[in-house]
């Protein structure tokens, strides 16, 4: 089964979602991420969704849950690069991802993670 690759940089894990995910793929990513947080002793998780032109409630929930699980595992999550049209749609849908940190791009996201760790 196809998987979304997870990269490690220092004590951070980086995921760039480049494909229109179906639900099983999203769940697989969530499983992989939580496992890697533990295995790599990661302190930060950066999820780049700049390539996604649709985020529906399922993927939104997957992102929220991943962030919550990461927190439990003592890692910070930051979601970066959400497109304006996606943000407007999510707000209209009623999904505000309240527990998730966000940043405009990967660079700012990494800076945020470093800053939080200090």
């Amino acid at each position: 089964m196809e998987r979304i690759p997870i990269l490690r940089m220092g004590n951070c894990l980086i995921v760039a979602i480049q494909v229109d995910m179906h639900d099983r793929l999203a769940i697989a990513l969530q499983d992989d991420l939580t496992e890697r947080i533990v295995k790599d002793k990661a302190k930060g998780v950066l999820i780049d969704i700049s390539a996604l032109d649709v985020v529906d409630s399922f993927i939104g929930r997957m992102i929220s849950n991943t962030a919550a699980m990461a927190t439990v595992l003592d890692a910070e999550t930051v979601v970066v690069g959400m497109q304006p049209s996606v943000a407007i749609t999510l707000v209209e849908l009623g999904l505000t991802l309240s527990g998730v940190s966000t940043a405009l791009n990967v660079e700012k996201g990494m800076a945020l993670l470093q800053q939080r760790r200090r």
Partner: peptide
């Protein structure tokens, strides 16, 4: 409020 929420989702 929606504008503020959408901007926050993007990281601003």
């Amino acid at each position: 409020l929606k504008t503020v929420a959408a901007a926050r989702l993007m990281g601003a």
